[in-house]
Design a protein around this nucleic acid. Structure first.
Length: 189
DNA sequence: AGGATGATCGTCT
DNA sequence: GACGATCATCCTC
């Protein structure tokens, strides 16, 4: 798995995210990510290390989770070498397993909406701040698996919902997937 | 101690 | 398309 942020954001498309909580197992395939680079004004690490964003400055491939707007959690994968602050936001999953559990957690039965959006996927997978900092290759409750045979066609666009460095095309998605959160195309860079 | 901010979501028109 | 919810975090006083 790549350490460089942009390469990681693309490599994560098609990978599988597993959440095991007792007898409740939920699984999804990553269909949309955004890269937040070192020195990037839109990255949470941009203004320096703090208790909230410390995971971004740690080793790569850890889970960085934060609360946004007081209502939603966002799940990220830290990137770059220890000491460099950067990461990849996971914006959407295609549900694979445990959809009934997801439906209960989300309060909707609409398959397409279960994990479409960073806050929604955290709700569906029961990811909160207690998962901040966990190693995504060794943790027992939340981990990443590879693509297997699957080879997604990857599109790219501007990132969604940000104001700083908004023109940079650092959002990646599986082309044609109905589970992608934003528009499949945004206005040209 | 107090105020502004935000990588969102659900609801309403 | 617009708006309010809701709160941890960060910045200023």
């Amino acid at each position: 798995m790549p350490v460089e942020t942009q390469a990681l954001a693309q490599a994560l498309i098609g990978c599988v995210l597993v959440r095991e909580n007792g007898d409740q197992t939920t699984v999804g395939r990553i269909v949309e990510t955004e890269a937040y680079l070192p020195g990037d004004p839109a990255c949470h690490a941009y203004t320096g290390k703090s208790p909230r964003n410390a995971t971004l400055f740690g080793p790569p491939h850890r889970s960085y989770v934060y609360l946004i707007y007081g209502t939603s959690y966002c799940f990220n994968v830290s990137s770059e070498a220890d000491g460099s602050g950067a990461g990849v936001l996971v914006r959407a999953l295609a549900p694979i397993e445990g959809t009934e559990v997801m439906q209960r957690r989300r309060g909707t039965t609409t398959l397409r909406d279960l994990c479409r959006g960073p806050g929604r996927l955290c709700a569906a997978m029961a990811i909160d701040r207690s998962f901040d900092g966990v190693d995504l290759f060794t943790h027992r409750g939340l981990w990443l698996a590879g693509r297997g045979e699957f080879e997604p066609r990857i599109g790219r666009s501007r990132r969604i919902g940000i104001t700083r460095a908004a023109a940079r095309r650092l959002r990646f998605y599986e082309a044609g997937s109905p589970y992608v959160s934003g528009p499949a195309r945004l206005s040209p860079s």
